[in-house]
Amino acid sequence: MYIKLNDRVYLNKDRITRIKVDDVQDGIRIRFYEGANQVAKSGKFPTIEEAQKWVDENFCSQI
């Protein structure tokens, strides 16, 4: 199943093995990994809570 990350990027949920919410210099981003390799990162979120809510809505609702 694919998730729309932004206007140009779709992620295959079945291949994502790890999701990390990072508070980096330029803002809060979600990083997506297949094994040890980072395959995508999200746009910026204003708060960690909003980033976590996005993850919960798009990845945890199917569990």
Rank of each mutant, 00 (worst) to 15 (best):
A51K: 00
I28Y: 04
R18W: 08
S42H: 01
S42C: 00
M1F: 03
F59M: 09
D23W: 11
A36K: 04
Q25F: 15
E57V: 03
E49D: 10
I3D: 02
Q25T: 14
F59S: 11
K44W: 03
D26A: 09
Y2R: 13
T47A: 11
Q25S: 12
G43Y: 01
I3Y: 01
K53C: 10
E57Q: 14
Q25R: 14
N58S: 00
L11P: 04
G27P: 06
V55F: 01
V39F: 00
N58C: 00
R31S: 11
D56W: 03
Y2A: 04
K44P: 01
R31L: 08
I48Q: 14
I63R: 10
I16S: 04
D22A: 02
F32H: 10
Q38I: 00
R18N: 14
D23I: 12
K53S: 10
Q62W: 05
V21F: 01
E34S: 04
D23Q: 13
I19Y: 03
C60E: 10
I16D: 13
M1C: 02
G43D: 05
K44M: 02
D22C: 05
Q38C: 08
S61F: 06
Q52S: 04
V24D: 08
R31T: 03
V55S: 02
G27W: 05
D14E: 09
D26F: 15
L5R: 04
I48V: 12
E34H: 03
Q25D: 15
G43H: 01
Y2C: 02
T17A: 06
P46F: 07
K13W: 02
E49C: 01
G35I: 08
V55R: 08
Y2D: 14
S42K: 00
L5I: 02
W54A: 01
F45Y: 07
Y33R: 11
Q25L: 11
K44I: 05
Q25Y: 15
K44C: 09
R15S: 11
Y10S: 15
N6Q: 11
V21H: 03
Q52M: 13
L11W: 04
N58D: 02
G27I: 04
K13H: 06
V9G: 04
I63E: 14
K44V: 09
E57K: 10
L11V: 06
S42W: 00
K41E: 15
E34V: 00
Y10A: 09
D14A: 12
G43K: 02
F45K: 01
E49K: 04
D7K: 14
V9A: 02
A36I: 07
I48H: 11
M1H: 05
V39S: 06
A36C: 03
D26S: 13
R18S: 13
M1Q: 06
G43P: 01
W54P: 07
V9H: 11
Q38D: 11
F32I: 06
I16K: 15
Q52E: 09
Y10F: 13
N6L: 05
I30Y: 03
A51C: 01
Q25K: 13
K20S: 08
A36Q: 06
D56A: 01
I3S: 01
D56M: 07
A51I: 00
Q62A: 13
E57W: 03
C60W: 13
F32V: 09
A40P: 07
R8L: 14
P46R: 11
Q52I: 05
R29E: 14
V9P: 05
L11F: 07
D26G: 12
